[in-house]
Nucleic acid binder design. Structure first.
Length: 448
RNA sequence: GGCCCUAUCGUCUAAUGGUUAGGACAGUUCCCUCUCACGGAACAAAUCGGGGUUCGAAUCCCCGUAGGGUCACCA
């Protein structure tokens, strides 16, 4: 048994300089899963030491995203609030002789004439990456890198390092783009006498252009998916499987996982080494799968909340068309669109189809269609009080088959729905009832 | 360019030296059907190249090649 006595502590440290996108969030997913799987702590740290680029709206976006995903963090830090501690460490490193104040000739506007550089011992640093194995990088060509603009303005490497140490981070799970930063951070950690955490460098998430996902190249904010009606559980599921996969079984292996199931199966060792492309089509499929698994009550709850967030209300007839709606929507946004764009307007609005539409798919002339409509009107009049899709079908299907289904069912369906595309006429009739069904057939016949 | 990482269907992936290289998404076709959607079935589609090691390599080693990352007083 790998019984580590220390509690596992992971962290997700985004900088509030842009909206969170899939790449960032997948890092959060892995950090969250790993920490929670082992009963450890998940720390959210806002890396806002760059005062120029950090914006509070982006910090809010980070918090909103975590909330939507249901990722509760055990600790929350804002790096800028650790400024005194960072200054203290900077001074200490200078005292120790591990850093020094360097006189510079500014090359760009805004650069300081005096910065703090780390005194690079110029050695090869080797660390073990859980995903990739041992990685050795010679730090000589890194030179004495800058760790502070001044005593009170720490830079990235100093900030992460000190904070990881102070917060007791045991596992640093981050993007592959940080591999080259790792030796520098290990050097600082050593100078501090701090323990070296376990590293796991994730493969990157690419866009369809096979380049690292970035806002600049059109990566969508994760909150946009929320606003389009994706489910957080689908997003987590998809992201978890982008670069990770449970041990393979032969046939029909599972792909749809709930968070508890992911927690059960997740291991850092099975994370992929190579980068993956973010595929919205597959995300959508996961969303549909998770949507299907919701009970009618839950679904109703979600769509109601979703629409309310957009200032909309679900129509009162929704319970009657729920099954129809659910099989026709892959996202809550699509369901919402169907509800407000008129696809189900036949429930309450008398349709007004044009004569052309009435015979468009009937493969018959107007006179024939009119005759059929009049005939099924008579057939339906004799259907008893039990007016359902089944009894309606029983009443007219034989006739329709006899004279050609298209010439009967198409016009009937259009008469009831007013639309080129809609559910089948039996379902429609059952939904709106005998009275409306008959009157709409009469109205349609009169148009021909 | 230096350094580092990586390489299985279009995409996400399975396989831990022995399989007709499996699954999923997307695609195509068919069935169900008056339309749309749902559902069902089928088809197509891959081990980057070259050398080794081995009875046997997608798997291990080497060399290429390709892609990516990184080389800030951003994080």
């Amino acid at each position: 048994m790998n019984s580590t006595h220390d509690t596992i502590v992971t962290r997700f440290p985004p900088s509030p300089t842009g909206l969170l996108q899939a790449g960032n969030v997948r890092t959060a997913v892995f950090n969250y899963l790993f920490a929670k799987k082992h009963g450890g702590k998940f720390v959210l740290r806002i890396e806002d030491t760059d005062r120029e680029r950090s914006k509070s709206e982006y910090e809010q976006n980070i918090i909103d995203t975590m909330k939507w995903l249901g990722f509760e963090y055990d600790e929350f830090y804002r790096q800028s609030e650790h400024a005194p501690r960072h200054s203290e460490v900077l001074s200490k490193l200078i005292e120790q002789g591990d850093a020094y104040v360097s006189q510079e000739t500014p090359k760009e506007a805004g650069q300081r004439a005096e910065v703090i550089r780390f005194k690079n011992p110029n050695t090869a640093v080797t660390f073990t990456d859980v995903i990739r194995g041992d990685i050795t990088i010679d730090t000589t060509d890194l030179g004495d890198f800058v760790i502070g603009r001044s005593l009170t303005e720490p830079l990235y490497h100093l900030g992460v390092t000190v904070d990881d140490f102070d917060e007791g981070i045991t596992h640093v799970i981050r993007g592959e783009d940080h591999i080259s930063n790792t030796p520098r951070q290990i050097l600082i950690l050593r100078a501090l006498g701090a323990p070296i955490p376990t590293y796991a460098h994730l493969p990157l998430v690419f866009g369809t252009d096979k380049q690292k996902l970035s806002k600049r190249r059109g990566a969508k904010a994760i909150t946009e998916y929320r606003d389009e009606g994706y489910l957080p559980e689908a997003m987590i599921n998809y992201l978890a499987l982008l670069g990770w996969h449970p041990e393979g079984k032969d046939e029909g292996e599972q792909e749809v996982f709930t968070v508890p199931e992911l927690l059960e199966q997740f291991t850092l060792e099975r994370i992929q080494k190579s980068s993956g492309v973010f595929d919205e089509a597959k995300l959508k499929w996961f969303n549909y799968e998770h949507l299907k698994r919701l009970s009618d009550e839950e679904f109703t709850d979600r769509i109601t909340t979703f629409m309310a967030a957009h200032g909309q209300e679900v129509p009162e007839y929704m319970p009657q068309i729920l099954t129809l709606l659910r099989e026709r929507s892959q996202t809550l946004g699509e369901a919402r669109d169907a509800l407000i764009m008129g696809e189900f307007a036949f429930m309450v609005v008398t349709p007004n189809p044009g004569p052309d539409l009435l015979i468009q798919g009937a493969k018959a002339d107007a006179a024939t269609v009119k005759r059929h409509l009049e005939h099924i009107h008579r057939l339906l009049e004799s259907v008893g009080p039990e007016f359902t899709d089944a009894t309606v079908k029983a009443a007219i299907f034989d006739y329709a088959t006899e004279v050609g289904r298209a010439s009967v069912l198409w016009p009937l369906r259009v008469a009831l729905s007013g639309r080129e595309k809609s559910p089948d006429p039996f379902t429609l009739a059952g939904l709106i009832g005998k009275e409306h069904t008959l009157s709409r057939i009469v109205a349609a016949a009169e148009l021909l």
